[in-house]
Write a protein that binds this DNA or RNA. Sequence first.
DNA 1: ATTTCTGGTTTACGAGTGTACACATCGACC
DNA 2: GGTCGATGTGTACACTCGTAAACCAGAAAT
Lengths: 215, 215
Amino acid sequence: MSERRTGRGRRPSVRGDTRKALIDGAFRLLDGNKSFDGLSQRELTREVGIGPTALYRHFPGMQELGLALVDEAFRGLRQIVQEVRTDIRSSKRPISAFVKSLLKHVRGHRDRFRFIASERFGGSGAVRDAIRRELRLVQSELAIELARFPYMKEWPSEDLHMVASLMVNSMVAIAEEILDRGTADKAAEAELVRLAERQLRLITLGIPAWKPAGD
Amino acid sequence: MSERRTGRGRRPSVRGDTRKALIDGAFRLLDGNKSFDGLSQRELTREVGIGPTALYRHFPGMQELGLALVDEAFRGLRQIVQEVRTDIRSSKRPISAFVKSLLKHVRGHRDRFRFIASERFGGSGAVRDAIRRELRLVQSELAIELARFPYMKEWPSEDLHMVASLMVNSMVAIAEEILDRGTADKAAEAELVRLAERQLRLITLGIPAWKPAGD
DNA sequence: ATTTCTGGTTTACGAGTGTACACATCGACC
DNA sequence: GGTCGATGTGTACACTCGTAAACCAGAAAT
């Protein structure tokens, strides 16, 4: 509690970043079992503590706010990918390092992850498309990273993307299930982490046997 | 157009199965880029052609309708699983047979599939949980089916489920992307089918190398 | 032939929603 | 010191929403 209430009926909003407050508020609300198109403008502005129309000062409409959410969610995720990358390189057991990093970051940004997973398929056009585009980007980065591993050095990028997409899909699915159990239930979480590791391991076992050229 | 308009302002609704009409109407509406909790009761009843309150004659509320949707969607899917099963057994190339069957049925029941994929993660508690429960059931059936294949005969069920979950997850993801391109764009569709086949093939390549006991 | 059940109708109400418009306050800039 | 743009506020309007209540037609059962 620093300085509050500067004017009269003025909700202070820390002077400057109401936009950020809106984005955070949206994540907060969406975290509570709501889908984006079930989120109303008024509800959001109420949560943030501003008048209904003030939202227009920052976004032309809800859809644009949705896109900003996607942007924000993936800004975090890209950073994660970076860190995961170095973690993997410096480890003798890349798979469990990967999963461990992932888990840490999923827990740290639960609402962002939640948003990505929920709106990836559900939802309304623009947002969904944006998410997919970004996810495909993540996939590409993963593909690049995969290219450094022994067996895959010579693989065509098509095959690399195939593997990357498989990995990303299963990780997203598992991450969502982890988030769905509350931060409680450590047992279920550990179980899911183990599942993730095993799936990745299975995939990597298939790699040496893959014939990169084609069928 | 058989006999219509029996009474006065009476929307006939084929006399008898308005309940089914509601379910179908819901699928229809949800197919058009809407999430379930963005679907209003009035909108639905309007679509079906009955008064707003008439919905209560068939469901206590929206949530129960949601559960009915899940039920209906998976009724179809279970049947699919059956057919896919026999298709696979009678084929020399189980993977491409699998994907082909899947594609056929996905196209035939596009709205049901759409619903499952969208509401699996997004959405509001009860519906989502129901979907997951059913999906886990499908996974189990797949696991059973997997147990018939050479290398996996002796695998513990935990490992079978691990593989099944990996397969189900990636197939759902790919199916959704196929549905998202309209029925047009045959090229993209073929590309995705190929991706599905390749991912499954990679997984199966890993299987002989897997050590069922543990790490 | 009358009753009762089922599935529908109409009307109504209060709450919530998106958007438009007019006004206030602050910080920055000349 | 005055102007101005950015960011708020408030009121207002026309909708839509969920739910309640009372009524109504046809089918089935007695």
